[in-house]
Deep mutational scan, measured.
Amino acid sequence: MSGIALSRLAQERKAWRKDHPFGFVAVPTKNPDGTMNLMNWECAIPGKKGTPWEGGLFKLRMLFKDDYPSSPPKCKFEPPLFHPNVYPSGTVCLSILEEDKDWRPAITIKQILLGIQELLNEPNIQDPAQAEAYTIYCQNRVEYEKRVRAQAKKFAPS
């Protein structure tokens, strides 16, 4: 494992614990031996107030490669969400998460999670990743928002 990646992720964890947006979660997972795995984080993004996503808490896994922060983490909703920019596998399609697009090593975990929260309610229809959600979003916004509200209710924190 890269010392650069681990040191950056340790800084990220410290900064997150000191200050993070209300309702968001970002925690490194534990290895079988109980030690912390900084390369694999369990996160959760709350649906934004005043949107059909409100009330939901959407679980996301963030996986970092050894060359982080040169390369972005892979962000994957578990379980996958109904959304035009979420692949059926759950992987998020967002330009700041793509090395050859808008990724920059200075982007923080907090910025990534806030960017994904923004994307939930403002899909990028130029870059669809899920045919069904994309089609319904474009053709029947009322039905799309109904499905999103049902999903938010399903993923409401207990």
Rank of each mutant, 00 (worst) to 15 (best):
W16Q: 04
W16F: 09
S158T: 13
N140W: 01
N85C: 04
F155L: 10
R17M: 03
P32T: 13
K76V: 13
L57P: 05
G47H: 06
L38H: 01
P105I: 07
T91M: 10
K153W: 06
D66K: 09
L6C: 11
W53V: 05
G50N: 15
L81Y: 02
A10L: 10
I45P: 07
F58L: 05
A152K: 02
D33P: 01
K65P: 11
G55N: 09
I45V: 15
S71P: 06
N121A: 10
P52A: 14
S71I: 08
Y68K: 00
G115C: 06
D100W: 05
F22L: 04
Q151V: 02
G115R: 00
A152G: 07
S158G: 06
K18G: 07
L120D: 00
P128M: 03
K101Y: 15
L57V: 08
D33E: 07
P21Q: 00
L6H: 08
L9P: 01
W103Y: 15
T29K: 13
M1D: 08
V86C: 09
M62I: 10
R149D: 08
R8Q: 06
T35G: 07
G47C: 12
I96W: 03
I116N: 00
E99A: 12
P157N: 10
D100M: 15
S89N: 07
L114Y: 12
K110E: 07
N40K: 12
A106Y: 00
V27L: 13
R147S: 13
I116Q: 06
S7M: 14
L9R: 01
N140E: 12
S71F: 06
C75V: 15
V86R: 02
D33H: 00
E118L: 11
L113D: 03
M39A: 07
C75Q: 02
A133L: 07
E12K: 02
E132I: 06
I96E: 00
P79C: 13
S95P: 01
E132C: 09
R147Y: 08
P84A: 12
N37A: 15
H20A: 00
R13K: 04
E132L: 09
W16S: 05
Y87I: 08
A156Q: 12
F24G: 07
G47Y: 10
R104V: 05
E143V: 10
A133V: 05
T91W: 14
I107V: 14
D19M: 08
P123V: 07
F82M: 05
K154I: 08
E99T: 05
H83L: 03
L9H: 01
I136D: 10
V25L: 09
R104N: 01
F22K: 01
F155A: 07
P73Y: 03
Q139M: 12
G55R: 06
G23E: 09
I109F: 07
P72M: 00
Q151N: 07
I4E: 12
I107H: 11
P79G: 14
K59F: 13
A26S: 10
P73K: 02
K18Y: 03
E54H: 08
R61S: 12
I4Y: 09
E122I: 08
D100A: 13
E118Q: 09
N31M: 13
D127F: 04
D67F: 15
K110G: 05
G3H: 08
E145S: 06
H83T: 14
K65E: 15
W53F: 05
Q11W: 11
K101Q: 09
Y134G: 05
Q151W: 02
R17L: 01
P80V: 07
A10K: 15
A150E: 10
K146Q: 09
E132G: 11
K76C: 11
P80K: 11
Y144W: 06
N124I: 03
H20I: 05
K101A: 15
I116H: 09
A10T: 11
A26H: 00
Q117W: 08
P123A: 06
I4P: 08
K154G: 03
A156C: 10
E42S: 11
E132R: 08
Y68N: 01
V142W: 10
E99F: 09
V27Y: 10
G47W: 08
V148L: 06
P123R: 02
N37I: 09
P52H: 14
D102M: 12
Q126E: 13
G34Y: 04
D33R: 01
K65Y: 09
D127A: 05
A10I: 06
F22P: 03
K154Y: 09
N124Y: 09
T135M: 10
T29Q: 07
W41Y: 03
N40I: 07
A15W: 08
Q117P: 08
Y137D: 02
P84N: 13
C75T: 08
D66M: 11
K49D: 09
E42Q: 09
L114P: 14
K74D: 15
S7L: 10
K76Y: 15
E132M: 09
A156G: 08
G56W: 01
L97R: 03
A106D: 03
R17W: 03
L57Q: 11
S95T: 09
L114G: 12
P88V: 08
S70A: 13
T108Y: 15
R147E: 10
I116R: 05
F58N: 01
P157R: 08
A133K: 04
I116Y: 08
V86A: 08
S95L: 04
E99R: 10
I107G: 12
L119I: 05
C43A: 12
